[in-house]
Simulated scan of single mutants.
Amino acid sequence: MIYLKGLLKFLPTIGILLFIGIYIYASKLYPGGSQADLNAVGFDWSNNYWCNLMLENGLNGVKNKAQPIAITGIIILCSSMIIFFFQFANHFEKHRMWKMIIKISGTLAISSAPFIFSEYHDIMTSVLSISGTVVIIGMIRALYNNQLPFMMVMGICCILIIGLNNFFYYNENLIQYGPIVQKGAFILILSWTIGLNLISNRKNVP
Protein backbone atom coordinates (compact mmCIF):
# COMPACT_ATOMS: atom_id res chain seq x y z
CA MET A 1 0.00 0.00 0.00
CA ILE A 2 2.83 2.39 0.89
CA TYR A 3 4.60 1.46 -2.36
CA LEU A 4 1.45 2.20 -4.38
CA LYS A 5 0.96 5.54 -2.65
CA GLY A 6 4.55 6.46 -3.43
CA LEU A 7 4.13 5.42 -7.05
CA LEU A 8 1.06 7.63 -7.45
CA LYS A 9 3.19 10.68 -6.64
CA PHE A 10 5.14 10.04 -9.83
CA LEU A 11 2.10 9.70 -12.10
CA PRO A 12 3.06 12.85 -14.07
CA THR A 13 6.48 11.39 -14.90
CA ILE A 14 5.03 7.97 -15.72
CA GLY A 15 2.39 9.58 -17.96
CA ILE A 16 4.97 11.67 -19.81
CA LEU A 17 7.17 8.64 -20.47
CA LEU A 18 4.13 6.71 -21.74
CA PHE A 19 3.26 9.63 -24.01
CA ILE A 20 6.76 9.71 -25.49
CA GLY A 21 6.57 5.98 -26.24
CA ILE A 22 3.11 6.36 -27.79
CA TYR A 23 4.27 9.38 -29.81
CA ILE A 24 7.12 7.40 -31.34
CA TYR A 25 4.88 4.39 -32.05
CA ALA A 26 2.16 6.55 -33.62
CA SER A 27 4.71 8.25 -35.85
CA LYS A 28 5.55 4.86 -37.35
CA LEU A 29 1.88 4.34 -38.32
CA TYR A 30 1.40 7.75 -39.92
CA PRO A 31 0.80 7.23 -43.67
CA GLY A 32 2.51 10.38 -44.86
CA GLY A 33 2.25 13.94 -46.05
CA SER A 34 3.81 17.02 -44.49
CA GLN A 35 3.87 20.76 -44.95
CA ALA A 36 6.96 20.32 -47.11
CA ASP A 37 5.63 17.49 -49.28
CA LEU A 38 1.98 16.44 -49.30
CA ASN A 39 2.85 13.24 -51.16
CA ALA A 40 5.61 12.13 -48.79
CA VAL A 41 5.42 8.67 -47.21
CA GLY A 42 5.69 8.29 -43.44
CA PHE A 43 6.19 10.77 -40.62
CA ASP A 44 8.84 13.41 -41.30
CA TRP A 45 10.33 14.53 -37.98
CA SER A 46 11.52 17.77 -39.56
CA ASN A 47 8.28 18.74 -41.31
CA ASN A 48 5.36 17.09 -39.49
CA TYR A 49 3.63 18.47 -36.41
CA TRP A 50 2.41 16.28 -33.54
CA CYS A 51 -1.19 17.19 -34.41
CA ASN A 52 -0.73 15.63 -37.88
CA LEU A 53 -0.80 12.25 -36.13
CA MET A 54 -4.31 12.98 -34.84
CA LEU A 55 -5.86 13.68 -38.24
CA GLU A 56 -8.39 11.25 -39.70
CA ASN A 57 -6.29 11.05 -42.87
CA GLY A 58 -2.62 11.79 -43.45
CA LEU A 59 -1.87 14.97 -45.38
CA ASN A 60 -1.32 12.69 -48.38
CA GLY A 61 -4.99 11.66 -48.18
CA VAL A 62 -4.40 8.09 -46.94
CA LYS A 63 -6.36 6.77 -43.93
CA ASN A 64 -4.39 7.53 -40.78
CA LYS A 65 -4.03 4.44 -38.56
CA ALA A 66 -2.08 6.51 -36.03
CA GLN A 67 -5.09 8.66 -35.07
CA PRO A 68 -6.60 6.59 -32.21
CA ILE A 69 -3.16 5.88 -30.76
CA ALA A 70 -2.11 9.53 -30.97
CA ILE A 71 -5.36 10.69 -29.34
CA THR A 72 -4.82 8.15 -26.55
CA GLY A 73 -1.33 9.54 -26.08
CA ILE A 74 -2.50 13.14 -25.80
CA ILE A 75 -5.23 12.15 -23.31
CA ILE A 76 -2.63 10.40 -21.13
CA LEU A 77 -0.32 13.41 -21.36
CA CYS A 78 -3.09 15.89 -20.52
CA SER A 79 -4.28 13.84 -17.54
CA SER A 80 -0.71 13.56 -16.27
CA MET A 81 -0.11 17.31 -16.63
CA ILE A 82 -3.31 18.26 -14.77
CA ILE A 83 -2.21 16.02 -11.88
CA PHE A 84 1.20 17.67 -12.03
CA PHE A 85 -0.18 21.22 -11.80
CA PHE A 86 -2.21 20.33 -8.72
CA GLN A 87 0.78 18.59 -7.13
CA PHE A 88 3.07 21.51 -7.92
CA ALA A 89 0.67 24.12 -6.53
CA ASN A 90 0.17 22.16 -3.32
CA HIS A 91 3.89 21.50 -2.82
CA PHE A 92 5.50 24.77 -3.86
CA GLU A 93 2.93 27.56 -3.57
CA LYS A 94 1.69 28.90 -0.24
CA HIS A 95 -0.28 31.92 -1.49
CA ARG A 96 -3.91 30.90 -1.95
CA MET A 97 -4.58 33.09 -5.00
CA TRP A 98 -1.46 31.95 -6.88
CA LYS A 99 -2.18 28.36 -5.96
CA MET A 100 -5.57 28.69 -7.67
CA ILE A 101 -4.05 30.49 -10.68
CA ILE A 102 -1.61 27.63 -11.25
CA LYS A 103 -4.32 24.98 -10.95
CA ILE A 104 -6.94 26.77 -13.08
CA SER A 105 -4.68 28.12 -15.85
CA GLY A 106 -2.79 24.83 -15.99
CA THR A 107 -6.01 22.84 -16.32
CA LEU A 108 -7.37 25.26 -18.94
CA ALA A 109 -4.18 25.06 -20.98
CA ILE A 110 -4.03 21.29 -20.93
CA SER A 111 -7.78 20.82 -21.49
CA SER A 112 -7.49 22.75 -24.76
CA ALA A 113 -4.66 20.54 -26.05
CA PRO A 114 -6.81 17.60 -27.27
CA PHE A 115 -8.75 19.99 -29.49
CA ILE A 116 -5.77 21.33 -31.43
CA PHE A 117 -6.38 18.63 -34.05
CA SER A 118 -9.95 19.83 -34.63
CA GLU A 119 -11.33 22.63 -36.80
CA TYR A 120 -10.65 24.95 -33.86
CA HIS A 121 -6.89 24.35 -34.09
CA ASP A 122 -5.83 28.00 -34.23
CA ILE A 123 -8.15 29.08 -31.38
CA MET A 124 -7.11 26.18 -29.16
CA THR A 125 -3.45 26.82 -29.93
CA SER A 126 -3.89 30.42 -28.75
CA VAL A 127 -5.74 29.33 -25.59
CA LEU A 128 -3.04 26.77 -24.88
CA SER A 129 -0.25 29.30 -25.39
CA ILE A 130 -1.82 32.08 -23.28
CA SER A 131 -2.93 29.82 -20.43
CA GLY A 132 0.36 27.94 -20.60
CA THR A 133 2.29 31.19 -20.27
CA VAL A 134 0.20 32.23 -17.25
CA VAL A 135 0.72 28.93 -15.44
CA ILE A 136 4.46 28.97 -16.14
CA ILE A 137 4.72 32.54 -14.80
CA GLY A 138 2.97 31.36 -11.62
CA MET A 139 5.33 28.41 -11.38
CA ILE A 140 8.41 30.59 -11.90
CA ARG A 141 7.22 32.80 -9.06
CA ALA A 142 6.83 29.77 -6.79
CA LEU A 143 10.26 28.43 -7.77
CA TYR A 144 11.84 31.81 -7.01
CA ASN A 145 10.25 31.81 -3.55
CA ASN A 146 11.48 28.24 -3.00
CA GLN A 147 15.03 29.20 -4.06
CA LEU A 148 15.26 26.85 -7.04
CA PRO A 149 17.12 29.11 -9.53
CA PHE A 150 17.98 26.43 -12.13
CA MET A 151 14.39 25.25 -12.45
CA MET A 152 13.27 28.88 -12.52
CA VAL A 153 15.59 29.59 -15.48
CA MET A 154 14.26 26.49 -17.24
CA GLY A 155 10.74 27.87 -16.74
CA ILE A 156 11.75 31.16 -18.35
CA CYS A 157 13.19 29.20 -21.27
CA CYS A 158 9.85 27.38 -21.57
CA ILE A 159 8.02 30.72 -21.93
CA LEU A 160 10.51 31.85 -24.56
CA ILE A 161 10.18 28.68 -26.61
CA ILE A 162 6.36 28.83 -26.43
CA GLY A 163 6.57 32.36 -27.83
CA LEU A 164 9.07 31.25 -30.44
CA ASN A 165 6.84 28.35 -31.44
CA ASN A 166 3.91 30.70 -32.07
CA PHE A 167 6.11 33.20 -33.90
CA PHE A 168 7.34 30.52 -36.28
CA TYR A 169 3.86 29.04 -36.75
CA TYR A 170 2.22 32.34 -37.75
CA ASN A 171 5.13 33.59 -39.89
CA GLU A 172 4.92 32.35 -43.47
CA ASN A 173 8.67 32.75 -43.95
CA LEU A 174 9.52 30.70 -40.87
CA ILE A 175 6.70 28.15 -40.65
CA GLN A 176 8.93 25.57 -42.33
CA TYR A 177 10.91 25.42 -39.08
CA GLY A 178 7.77 25.21 -36.92
CA PRO A 179 7.76 21.41 -36.48
CA ILE A 180 11.37 21.45 -35.23
CA VAL A 181 10.65 24.26 -32.76
CA GLN A 182 7.52 22.41 -31.59
CA LYS A 183 9.53 19.29 -30.81
CA GLY A 184 12.11 21.40 -29.00
CA ALA A 185 9.30 22.90 -26.92
CA PHE A 186 8.00 19.40 -26.12
CA ILE A 187 11.44 18.22 -25.00
CA LEU A 188 12.13 21.28 -22.83
CA ILE A 189 8.72 21.54 -21.17
CA LEU A 190 8.35 17.81 -20.50
CA SER A 191 11.91 17.59 -19.15
CA TRP A 192 11.17 20.53 -16.85
CA THR A 193 7.96 18.87 -15.69
CA ILE A 194 9.69 15.57 -14.91
CA GLY A 195 12.44 17.41 -13.03
CA LEU A 196 9.92 19.30 -10.90
CA ASN A 197 7.89 16.15 -10.24
CA LEU A 198 11.01 14.40 -8.96
CA ILE A 199 12.08 17.40 -6.87
CA SER A 200 8.66 17.89 -5.29
CA ASN A 201 8.44 14.26 -4.23
CA ARG A 202 12.01 14.16 -2.96
CA LYS A 203 11.22 17.29 -0.98
CA ASN A 204 8.24 15.60 0.66
CA VAL A 205 9.83 12.27 1.54
CA PRO A 206 9.15 11.70 5.29
Score class of each variant (00 low, 15 high):
residue 46 S to G: 09
residue 24 I to A: 01
residue 203 K to F: 07
residue 112 S to W: 13
residue 107 T to W: 00
residue 109 A to C: 13
residue 37 D to C: 07
residue 152 M to H: 10
residue 66 A to I: 09
residue 74 I to N: 05
residue 135 V to C: 03
residue 136 I to A: 03
residue 7 L to M: 13
residue 6 G to P: 08
residue 147 Q to Y: 11
residue 143 L to A: 02
residue 157 C to E: 10
residue 91 H to V: 15
residue 68 P to V: 02
residue 114 P to I: 13
residue 84 F to C: 01
residue 139 M to D: 01
residue 56 E to N: 11
residue 39 N to I: 00
residue 204 N to E: 10
residue 123 I to W: 06
residue 19 F to A: 05
residue 2 I to N: 09
residue 191 S to L: 05
residue 63 K to L: 12
residue 11 L to K: 03
residue 35 Q to F: 06
residue 60 N to S: 04
residue 41 V to H: 07
residue 37 D to W: 01
residue 117 F to I: 11
residue 98 W to C: 09
residue 141 R to Y: 15
residue 185 A to Q: 11
residue 43 F to D: 00
residue 114 P to G: 08
residue 5 K to M: 15
residue 68 P to G: 05
residue 38 L to G: 12
residue 59 L to G: 02
residue 1 M to S: 14
residue 10 F to Y: 12
residue 49 Y to E: 06
residue 205 V to N: 01
residue 28 K to T: 04
residue 108 L to I: 15
residue 159 I to S: 01
residue 164 L to P: 05
residue 162 I to W: 00
residue 196 L to G: 04
residue 39 N to A: 03
residue 134 V to R: 04
residue 151 M to S: 10
residue 84 F to P: 04
residue 177 Y to L: 12
residue 86 F to D: 02
residue 96 R to C: 00
residue 134 V to E: 05
residue 78 C to V: 15
residue 168 F to N: 01
residue 78 C to N: 13
residue 67 Q to K: 15
residue 189 I to G: 10
residue 2 I to A: 07
residue 184 G to C: 13
residue 97 M to F: 14
residue 174 L to M: 03
residue 38 L to P: 04
residue 151 M to K: 11
residue 32 G to I: 05
residue 150 F to P: 02
residue 103 K to L: 10
residue 165 N to M: 13
residue 145 N to L: 15
residue 2 I to Q: 03
residue 128 L to T: 11
residue 34 S to F: 02
residue 108 L to N: 04
residue 110 I to K: 03
residue 96 R to S: 12
residue 47 N to F: 07
residue 27 S to Q: 07
residue 124 M to Y: 00
residue 46 S to Q: 02
residue 106 G to M: 08
residue 81 M to F: 10
residue 2 I to E: 06
residue 12 P to I: 06
residue 151 M to F: 12
residue 12 P to V: 03
residue 110 I to F: 12
residue 1 M to E: 10
residue 112 S to R: 06
residue 92 F to D: 06
residue 42 G to T: 09
residue 165 N to V: 06
residue 67 Q to G: 03
residue 135 V to T: 12
residue 52 N to A: 11
residue 177 Y to W: 14
residue 106 G to N: 09
residue 104 I to D: 00
residue 59 L to S: 01
residue 9 K to N: 13
residue 148 L to R: 09
residue 163 G to M: 09
residue 173 N to S: 15
residue 171 N to I: 05
residue 70 A to C: 12
residue 82 I to G: 03
residue 116 I to M: 13
residue 134 V to K: 12
residue 54 M to L: 12
residue 76 I to T: 08
residue 128 L to Q: 10
residue 180 I to E: 01
residue 167 F to M: 08
residue 167 F to H: 06
residue 107 T to P: 07
residue 126 S to F: 08
residue 127 V to T: 10
residue 65 K to M: 14
residue 104 I to N: 02
residue 92 F to V: 07
residue 117 F to Q: 07
residue 116 I to V: 11
residue 15 G to L: 10
residue 168 F to I: 04
residue 118 S to M: 13
residue 53 L to I: 05
residue 74 I to T: 07
residue 71 I to T: 11
residue 43 F to P: 00
residue 34 S to W: 01
residue 20 I to K: 00
residue 28 K to D: 05
residue 71 I to C: 09
residue 140 I to F: 07
residue 89 A to P: 06
residue 5 K to E: 14
residue 75 I to S: 09
residue 181 V to G: 09
residue 37 D to G: 04
residue 177 Y to C: 07
residue 82 I to N: 04
residue 89 A to M: 06
